[in-house]
Design a protein around this nucleic acid. Structure first.
Lengths: 226, 226
DNA sequence: CGCGCTGCTATACGGTCGTACAACAACAGC
DNA sequence: GCTGTTGTTGTACGACCGTATAGCAGCGCG
């Protein structure tokens, strides 16, 4: 009997390719199983690979998770930015598209939210993950800051402080995203977009007193009227 | 030799007392160890009790965690409410105190944030925990809605819609609280309070278009001016 | 075709996990 | 003081965890 050519039991891959595949498998495992998915056995199974291979390519699981965190957050930010900046549009319109992209169905997936929770819960105990958070949050805030900066150059828009404005806007976006992810029935995505739009309108109307840049000749801050 | 009276090896307690003690131990364990603290052994050690006792008083760990979630969130809300409503103050002042209490050092503890992450990560998979979230988030939102309702009765304050306003405000508060908990160096607590105060000012100034209640005779909504 | 480099697998080990269950002991009632 | 109830302990079990390590095998290269 002629010896059949056996299908190879596994395929070799150059380290960079394998590392990327493991990162993707990590994201898939976390998305499916949440915190339970954070194990070399689950990730290995997801990647169709033996558990020991993770430790062969990454010094520890934390390094892999940090890489996955960076990959996912940068990918999401880039995706949202692309939708916000596609075609020429006014700064205000770009912000609106940013909001819409932030509350698109793909972003409101419960699996995505659970993945994010795992990343957040690791920032306290692992410096690498914390570093990734600091870096990606800064990138996110700077993206908003850039869009707000373009808005500020428009006619009749007051000279607000971009950085605190971006912080407030990102907090509003995050808070809405979280609640929508936990309980989609609290409000509809369109309502979230409307609330962000309102915030932008108020910003343009100069309705946020402490966000207005300090005047050359400071005048005493007036107390709230209500 | 006279027989010495031995100190009892353990103390019995009526079920209600023991259950409460186990809830407190659960909160302490989660605060100290985050997700790792969610184990009958850790909780039992924290309560000075054998691991098996948890399963004797609670049908499963999820029931215990749901009870701890409810206890903690209601306790925090009550604490913030007490500070907001102590002594007579204007509605605006009460809101300011609510903000200040929300960003007090006790609320910005990393252990508290990690505890919250555990609760959130369980809402997807366990109906009991999800029910607690829905109930306590509703209570939180209604507290804000009540404070905003008092504000709305003031002179010169436009007739905004209380419910969406409370949703937006709670999102802003949550988003700021999360980022302050993850990375305290992004902004100072006073800045977070100022951003919330700004939001309130804008609300009073009628700067949130879609939050204004529909008119008796609706007029076409004007497009954004910037 | 055959050799060798190395990506990869398979196994073993010590640890922690949740749960079940039998035995123990605190304490109230008699 | 004795006894019964039952809150509580201690142990045992199987499953899964991360890591280390020895050896197998895919595949480029001569």
């Amino acid at each position: 009997m002629a010896r059949e050519r056996q299908a190879p039991k596994f395929r070799r891959a150059p380290p960079s390719i394998r590392r990327e595949a493991l990162i993707e498998a990590t994201l898939a495992s976390l998305r499916k199983h949440g915190h339970e998915g954070l194990s070399v056995r689950r990730i290995g199974a997801e990647a169709g690979v033996s558990p020991g291979l993770i430790n062969h390519h990454f010094p520890s699981v934390w390094t892999l998770v940090a890489a996955a965190y960076e990959t996912l957050s940068m990918s999401l930010l880039e995706s949202i930015q692309r939708r916000a900046r596609e075609s020429d549009a006014s700064p205000r319109e770009r912000l609106r598209r940013f909001y819409q992209a932030s509350f698109a169905p793909a972003l409101l997936d419960p699996g995505l939210f659970n993945t994010w929770l795992v990343f957040w819960s690791m920032t306290s105990h692992h410096a690498q993950v914390r570093a990734v958070h600091d870096r990606t949050y800064a990138a996110y805030r700077e993206a908003l800051e850039s869009l707000l900066g373009e808005l500020r150059r428009g006619d009749g828009v007051p000279r607000f402080k971009p950085r605190p404005a971006a912080i407030a806007l990102s907090a509003l976006l995050d808070g809405l995203w979280i609640e929508a992810s936990i309980n989609p029935r609290t409000f509809r995505p369109a309502e979230a977009v409307a609330l962000c739009e309102d915030w932008t309108s108020a910003l343009c109307a100069g309705a946020f007193p402490s966000l207005l840049a300090a005047r050359r000749s400071p005048r005493p801050r007036s107390p709230p009227r209500c």
